[in-house]
Design a protein around this nucleic acid. Structure first.
Length: 539
RNA sequence: GCCCCCGUAGCUCAGGGGAUAGAGCGCCGGCCUCCGGAGCCGGGCGCGCAGGUUCGAAUCCUGCCGGGGGCACCA
């Protein structure tokens, strides 16, 4: 079994050689044709090489197409020049049937896998919301993104660990403790404190000492349990939960500061440690300690990254931040460089802000009751699959607005049903096959060349794109491209299902179509799995 | 003031150097004696503005306009 595109690339290389052109380094593209009359694949070779060959694109294309046509190929039926100098390849349908064989023999566990990552170890940190309250819908959006990205990178051959960095120390936790103490003593919650219902609930359950630090720790631990649970309900589990407090207690922060000091990147200013991050392109130097001697947040974060890159030694580290944290990006990169790591080993992905509205009205992410801003509530309402697919539809580079009303009441706007329905139909066909006692088709016996209906071919074409879609989504850290593929694929399947009777047109065509359905099912399961969306047997 | 992201159809968003820019929703019409109609088919003078690079720009560069987010010894 071969990859047609590689095959065509070889033909091009061979033809170029025959023509005596020295164009080995030409960065041309070989892409799927955008329209049927352009064949199956297209290359822009002639346009790209025009300058260095000193000939017109049309002339180059004509010569090259002629040379390629002289080569024998099992897959390429026809080569022609079109437009400004495109070379279009028309292929026999065999390459599409190969896709069925691949999918059916490999199954959902290995079909479309690759080894782009070459086993590189990678730490993916995401969500990391402060344990001062339950997760809101916005957290869930990025959580789905991070989880899908992790699955995707694992699928293409990275050795991925996922991690949640727990900010279980510092001012916000103290604030949380003070808010709870105030509730317990019947006082007004202090300015800037936490006043959600959950604070009251925890206060009622607390039995320990009336000490702000102890209470804060208790509360953070309780909230982490809640967070963990709502993530699990979304289908997300982390390999590790990494405690900020533990880093500070272990002396790792002191250690990393001494590392920076030895390199001469720390200056003492009135007893405070100042990291000279401007030397590494930051817009200002950053304090690592406060006047009272406490570490700043950045100090802990630097120690945390030192731990990831140096102590634990991950080859590559990805952080997913909200755009509201972009300010810390230059400082972190400065620190990474200062403690002696290649900048490129750290990758920070910024998700643009997620906001909520309810029937046109903006809704604040307040922790008050009433609005469905709580992630767990939304998951309960529309299900994990719907939440995940909804959040994975668009790029994280775009600030998105979630309309609670639209998402919850007019759920037809959610493509999850359309996509899952395609899978449920595939499963239904299999049930019907058994019910009608139609024999299970065998790859070696069935005649796949019976699959010539435009709907069948369209379905296979979409499926054949999957490799590239996955690779692209992984490289661009863009799992939403998988959703785009799913929509196309589900659409192609529904069209096929509508126009082609699978079980009713005689045993030969039935066998071929059943294999096509099997193949489709493998493909869709792979992608649903990457997104963490359930593939239902029936709906 | 400086930095990051985004302006694509009425709305929500894909496409991010290639040949005629797409989908969903909404709106208007069709399609079930037949494997699930949560489906299928048809209906669309839309890339914020102005320059530039290129054989070719929605896509890359510059400027402007508009929206979001940053610019802490907070987290």
């Amino acid at each position: 079994m071969i990859n047609v595109k590689e095959h065509i690339s070889q033909l091009i290389a061979e033809a170029v050689g025959q023509l005596g052109w020295d164009e080995a380094g030409t960065e041309y593209e070989l892409t799927e044709a955008v329209r049927p009359e352009f064949g199956d694949f297209t290359t822009n070779f002639a346009m790209v090489a025009a300058k260095s060959l000193g000939q017109s694109p049309r002339q180059i294309a004509t010569d090259l197409a002629g040379a390629i046509a002289g080569l024998t190929s099992r897959y390429v039926d026809d080569v022609e020049v079109a437009g400004p100098g495109f070379i279009n390849f028309r292929c026999s349908l065999e390459w599409l049937y190969e896709e069925i064989r691949l999918a059916v023999t490999m199954g959902a566990a290995s079909y479309a896998r690759s080894n782009l990552g070459k086993g590189q170890s990678l730490l993916l940190e995401f969500v990391s919301a402060n344990p001062t309250g339950p997760l809101h819908v916005g957290n869930g959006w990025w959580a789905s993104y991070g989880d899908a990205l992790g699955r995707l990178l694992r699928f293409v051959g990275y050795e991925v660990s996922t991690e949640y960095y727990v900010n279980d120390t510092g001012g916000q936790i103290r604030q949380l403790g003070e808010s709870m103490l105030a509730v317990m003593e019947g006082r007004e919650v202090p300015e800037g404190g936490y006043r959600g219902e959950y604070v009251r609930t925890m206060a009622e359950r607390y039995r320990g000492e009336r000490d702000v630090t102890a209470i804060g720790k208790f509360a953070a631990d309780e909230i982490i349990k809640v967070i963990r649970l709502s993530l699990e309900e979304l289908g997300i589990e982390f390999d590790t939960w990494y405690s900020q407090a533990s880093i500070e207690e272990s002396g790792a922060v002191d250690h990393v500061i001494s590392v920076l000091e030895r390199q001469g990147f720390i200056e003492e200013v009135e007893g405070q440690k100042l990291f000279l991050s401007t030397r590494f392109g930051d817009s200002r130097d950053r304090y690592l300690t406060k006047p009272n001697g406490d570490f700043t947040y950045l100090a802990g974060d630097i120690a945390y990254h030192y731990d990831k890159l140096v102590v634990r030694g991950f080859e590559h580290v990805i952080d997913i931040f909200g755009a509201d944290h972009q300010g810390q990006v230059p400082s972190l990169f400065a620190a990474v460089e200062a403690f002696g790591c290649e900048r490129s080993r750290l990758e920070i992905l910024l998700g643009q802000m997620v906001s909520l509205q309810q029937g046109g009205e903006k809704v604040k992410f307040s922790k008050r009751k009433g609005n469905v801003v709580d992630l767990a509530e939304l998951v309960e309402l529309i299900g994990a699959s719907a939440v995940r697919l909804l959040s994975l539809q668009s790029s994280i580079d775009r600030a998105s607005t979630i309309d609670i009303e639209q998402v919850t009441t007019k759920s037809m706007e959610n493509p999850v049903y359309y996509i899952q329905y395609a899978h449920a139909r595939m499963a239904a066909i299999e049930r019907m096959r058994k019910e009608r006692k139609i024999p299970e088709p065998k790859l070696g016996e069935a005649d796949l060349t019976l699959l010539v209906h435009p709907r069948e071919l369209e379905l296979l074409r979409v499926q054949a794109r999957l490799d590239e879609v996955i690779a692209n989504a992984a490289v661009e850290r863009a799992p939403h491209k998988l959703v785009g593929w799913l929509k196309d694929f589900a659409g192609a399947f529904h069209g096929f299902y509508h126009d082609c009777s699978i079980l009713g047109e005689g045993p030969e065509i039935t066998a071929a179509r059943l294999l096509l359905v099997d193949s489709s099912r493998v493909a869709i399961q792979v992608v649903l799995g990457l997104l963490g969306v359930h593939a239902p047997e029936q709906m």
